[in-house]
Design a protein around this nucleic acid. Structure first.
Lengths: 214, 214
DNA sequence: AACATTATTATTCATTTGTATAACAAGGGT
DNA sequence: ACCCTTGTTATACAAATGAATAATAATGTT
């Protein structure tokens, strides 16, 4: 009547680490940071709890790796979407705005994940470093897009001005993303993206709505 | 050699409840939700852990009360600031923007507190209700201010338009608040508020910077 | 096919946490 | 001055948690 020992397969180190990291993100997103325990992560990953310590010296280190993975994935997706379309600057800018204001970026679970990390970011210097790098990259992307669009429109763009507009554009997107992710029922399909395009147009003095139709 | 029993004072119910609620907020802000335990809260409040259960049937209920207190306090402060100044609509709008983009609203600890609640808001219906009420009130405030400013400028404002602008204005403020609170070192004193005024001006087609100087 | 390595499972341990209960004393009523 | 209510402290407890250690079996090597 002895319970059988669980059968298993040996995986390569990188595979297992990625599996564990992804299971961690899934757990945090679903259960929240508080209820994300090593046992829960292990269940999600389909392994036993002990294995976690074989790859990560502590739960804290695993969470750190998960955050790094999350930031990197987000940045990569955003860049690939913009890079994969028409090189026309205005269209790119419009796509940048729209992508970040539609599913799957706008998503309650995604927001939860992001929020769960915030408090850790504040208290953990290693997490803070990862965050700052990601944020700066994101803002630089926005500035580059604006710069290119201005150039096409033959508009002068001083570095100061560019910085200010990058911050502002980023803020509208973040704010709308926040509202949309937090209160999904408050907006109809596509409304958020439309408001984003209009707002960005007003902020930058460009017509992104026309560009979006191309 | 027996340890002395801790001396204490009896407090009225509402006083104690408020003390416990405030201690809870302080704990969450400082330590994060995960490390906010009933014992830690009790220490912060200067009482022993057992007392908490005398006023709140569970830790969850205490956290809920703390969130309600937090939302109410924020809303009250915002309204009082705007109400306490010149009745000139443009100036009010400018103040609304500036207040929400300066200390003490823009603050890393404040952000932490807010973020800590997010995941709870998602999973707990009671928390979600409190949140939605607060958010709608905030947006309504913004819409009213915009409407008044438009009226002064003799501009027509359709309900749809008003809703859209309210959401957008709210988003810029939220986004800038987020960026400023998360990466305090990235902005110089007053920069955030300036960007906020400029952005709001562009969004609404009003000159809030001039209005701010009055 | 036997072996060695080590990834993985299984078990154990010390702490922590939320909650429950018991003991005590502060302050009001008479 | 005494008692009585109950706010408050102190102790206890079962469950959960991160981590440590022991046991086992999957896979590559020869």
């Amino acid at each position: 009547m002895s319970a059988q020992r669980k059968p298993f397969r040996r995986e390569g180190e990188d595979t297992r680490r990625r599996e564990l990291v992804e299971a961690t993100l899934a757990c945090i997103a679903t259960l929240g940071m508080e209820r994300t325990t090593v046992r829960e992560i292990a269940i999600k990953a389909g392994v036993t709890a002990g294995l976690i310590r074989h790859y990560f010296v502590s739960k804290e280190e695993l969470v750190l790796a998960a955050y790094a993975h999350y930031v990197a994935t987000m940045a990569k997706q955003s860049r690939e979407t913009v890079a994969g379309i028409s090189p026309e600057p205005l269209t790119r800018l419009a796509t940048f705005v729209k992508t970040n204001l539609s599913a799957p970026v706008v998503d309650q679970t995604n927001l939860s994940l992001w929020a769960s990390f915030i408090e850790t970011v504040r208290t953990n210097p290693a997490m803070a470093a990862i965050h700052l790098e990601g944020y700066r990259g994101y803002r630089t992307d926005a500035e580059m897009l604006i710069k290119a669009a201005f150039k096409t429109a033959k508009r002068i763009s001083a570095p100061n001005e560019l910085r200010r507009l990058g911050i502002a554009l980023n803020a509208v997107i973040d704010g709308l993303w926040l509202e949309g992710s937090m209160s999904p029922g408050e907006f109809v399909e596509g409304e958020l993206a439309q408001i984003g395009l209009r707002s960005a147009s007003a902020l930058l003095g460009l017509d992104l709505q026309k560009a979006d139709l191309k």
